[in-house]
Simulated scan of single mutants.
Amino acid sequence: MAAGRVLPFAISLFFVFLVVGFFSVVCSAKDDHPNKCAPSSCGIIPNISYPFRLNNDPDNCGDQRYNLSCENNRTVLYFYSGKYYVQAINYDNYTIRVVDANLREGDCSSMPRYSLAVYNFRSPYPYNFCQRTKKRIGKFDVLDCIELSKPVIFMSCETQVNSPLYVDTSPCTNLMSSLSGHVFVKIGHLNASDMRDLCRIDLTVATSWPGANDTNITYVDIHKELVYGFELSWLQGKSRDYSWRSTCYIDSDTGKAACGSNSMLHEADR
């Protein structure tokens, strides 16, 4: 090769290696980001790690959408103007369990302060009441949404109601200080046919207590369910680590989280 051509070739080759090296560093930094910071801890939550972070962690730690705070040695999640104590974070199934901060164990007169329903959780909100799960139906991979929590509905009625669907809260008389009339609780979704005359919905909350039993249950039992808290999925936030065209889900065959192109998946509820 002529001497006059060697220098331009060498310079071009140098820039190729420089660009490739730059992108290699960028990709590596992105992949290492979740492990860049040591886990934090607060109270009963010992391993607060990516995507979660405490609000006093360095800015490069975790994802700002999953910000938590540590108050009086309790891990706190604020969302929809509500305050919730974090009871557990499961990094295997991408769930977080929280409880309304106004509830007190063993005191059935304490009731949730913040109303929360399924319609509050709309994409692109980082939490969801249901967990996307992929299963195979025929030739297609179908996404289903498995409900993690069930609603608990507080209603006040002008007259007494005799219905197996309505649980009387009267043993916990202090409830009457915040709700007027006869106060009842309905567990599960409320159909129009379930609504009684002269009754109104005051509050909708949730529970994920695995030992729940909807038959022969008292309000004291329901209060224990509420104190247990409810689960939310944070799996959909994982999609952001890939692209807006991807959807993340739990594979029903492996039990592990995966992400795939929206064009290759079919929504079960479409």
Score class of each variant (00 low, 15 high):
27 C>S: 13
28 S>Y: 09
31 D>N: 10
32 D>V: 12
32 D>R: 14
33 H>M: 05
35 N>A: 12
35 N>H: 15
36 K>Y: 11
36 K>N: 12
41 S>M: 08
44 I>C: 02
44 I>K: 05
44 I>T: 14
46 P>L: 08
47 N>T: 15
47 N>G: 08
51 P>L: 08
52 F>D: 11
53 R>N: 13
55 N>T: 13
55 N>K: 09
56 N>S: 14
56 N>C: 05
59 D>H: 04
60 N>P: 02
60 N>R: 10
60 N>W: 15
61 C>V: 10
62 G>A: 14
64 Q>Y: 14
65 R>W: 04
67 N>I: 14
69 S>T: 13
70 C>Y: 01
71 E>I: 15
73 N>T: 02
75 T>K: 06
79 F>D: 01
79 F>L: 13
79 F>I: 01
80 Y>I: 02
82 G>L: 04
83 K>N: 06
84 Y>T: 05
86 V>N: 10
87 Q>M: 05
87 Q>S: 03
91 Y>A: 10
92 D>F: 00
92 D>G: 07
92 D>M: 09
93 N>C: 06
94 Y>K: 06
95 T>Q: 11
96 I>C: 12
97 R>K: 06
99 V>E: 01
101 A>C: 02
101 A>G: 06
103 L>G: 06
104 R>L: 13
105 E>F: 11
105 E>M: 07
105 E>R: 13
106 G>I: 01
108 C>F: 11
109 S>H: 06
110 S>D: 09
110 S>K: 09
111 M>T: 15
112 P>Q: 05
112 P>H: 10
113 R>Q: 08
114 Y>P: 00
114 Y>I: 09
117 A>P: 04
118 V>N: 07
118 V>K: 07
118 V>W: 01
119 Y>S: 08
121 F>M: 08
122 R>G: 02
122 R>S: 10
122 R>C: 02
125 Y>K: 07
127 Y>M: 13
128 N>G: 06
128 N>C: 02
129 F>T: 08
131 Q>V: 06
131 Q>R: 05
131 Q>T: 08
133 T>F: 06
135 K>G: 08
136 R>H: 09
138 G>L: 06
139 K>N: 14
140 F>H: 02
140 F>Y: 11
142 V>Y: 00
143 L>W: 03
143 L>N: 01
143 L>C: 02
144 D>R: 07
145 C>A: 03
146 I>L: 03
147 E>D: 08
148 L>S: 04
149 S>H: 01
149 S>F: 02
149 S>I: 04
149 S>R: 01
150 K>Y: 00
156 S>F: 08
